[in-house]
Amino acid sequence: MKKGYTHIAKQVINIEANALLGLKKTIDTSFDEAISIILNAKGKVIVTGIGKSGHIGRKIAASFASTGTPSFFLHPSEAIHGDLGMISKEDIVLAIANSGETTEIIRLIPFTKENDIPLISISSKPNSTLAQKSSVHISIGSFEEACPFNMAPTTSSLLTLAIGDAMVVSLMNGRGFNEENFAKLHPGGNIGKRLLDTVADSMKTENLPLLSENAVMTDVIYTINSGRCGLGVVGTNSCVKGIITDGDLRRAMNSSLKDFFNLTAAEVMTPNPKFISKSTKLIDAKNAMNSYKITSLLVGNEHQLDGVIQLHDINL
């Protein structure tokens, strides 16, 4: 029989979840002090750490940089072999070391002291050398590593990452960092598309399915099919009277089956259709359509038809 491991997965998750809940009790005013120092700094946040702490540090630095806090990761070994020149007196050093005694990290302390550079540290040992010599120390508290030997960085990495994420979000809040700011730093991929692209980028503007009020049903159906917008617009580009959707046609057919083909567009249309501005963000247009439970919106207003945007045009 194949050996199962789900019980181990659940055990690891349980250990780490309990540690995260314990971390809430550990956070104190030192966290506020650290955020205040970073918010008031004129320079960058230089994140440093070695081993697994270094991997977590790289992620924290990247998150800082992408959310309005200039930052980069500096490997402590490279730092003590010449790269300390990358740190200016206006910068802040954020050092991560679970034990607080990592040699490469400790050797950075004299440089920060000599240059009056604030040193923020994250570790599990409040009495360690790093904690005692830092401007501010953030403790991740006591915990059990999920490793069966209580040695491999598992829980400790997660707790450090959680502190980093908490710092990122706190700094975003402190700086008033909003979606527009976020979009400017994430112009590519789905994030950029969601936050930057507008209705004008995806709407259909040519060969719009316009109908006169007197158009008969054969012309209405032909125009809707050829327009490929799922609707017909009754009126002109400068005066929209209403729209006709597939739903309107079905309802008209059910209520006037014998006389259906004698009906005119004006008799079938839905007046006062919903419009959206072409400057509206695509994500907002998508949310509007979902809210109205429709698949298309006219772009512009009753006096100026700019185009048609459909749900399937919004690839988010």
Score class of each variant (00 low, 15 high):
Pro273His: 08
Ser212Tyr: 00
Lys193Met: 08
Ile224Arg: 04
Gln304His: 12
Ile244Asp: 01
Met172Glu: 06
Ala215Leu: 06
Arg175Gln: 14
Ser226Tyr: 09
Thr270Asn: 13
Thr245Ile: 01
Phe275Asn: 09
His186Ser: 04
Thr198Val: 12
Asn181Met: 10
Ser279Leu: 03
Lys286Trp: 09
Ile191Ser: 02
Ile276Phe: 05
Asp197Val: 06
Ala200Val: 04
Thr264Ala: 03
Gly300Cys: 03
His186Gly: 04
Ala265Ile: 01
Lys241Met: 11
Thr218Cys: 03
Asn214Val: 12
Thr223Phe: 04
Glu302Gly: 08
His312Ile: 10
Pro271Gly: 07
Arg228Trp: 05
Ile191Met: 11
Phe182Ile: 04
Arg250His: 04
Glu180Cys: 00
His303Lys: 15
Ile221Phe: 05
Asn214Gln: 14
Met203Gln: 05
Pro271Glu: 14
Asn272Ser: 15
Asn214Arg: 12
Asn190Ile: 14
Ala183Leu: 08
Leu257Cys: 08
Tyr292Pro: 00
Ile243Val: 15
Val233Arg: 01
Phe261Trp: 07
Ile243His: 02
Pro271Asp: 10
Leu257His: 12
Thr295Asn: 14
Asn301Thr: 01
Ser238Val: 09
Ser291Arg: 14
Val199Ala: 03
Gly174Ile: 07
Gly232Asn: 04
Leu298Ala: 05
Cys229Gly: 13
Met253Glu: 01
Ala285Ser: 15
Gln310Ala: 12
Asn254Ser: 12
Val220Ala: 11
Arg194Asn: 13
Ala215His: 00
Gln310Phe: 03
Asn178His: 11
Lys281Met: 10
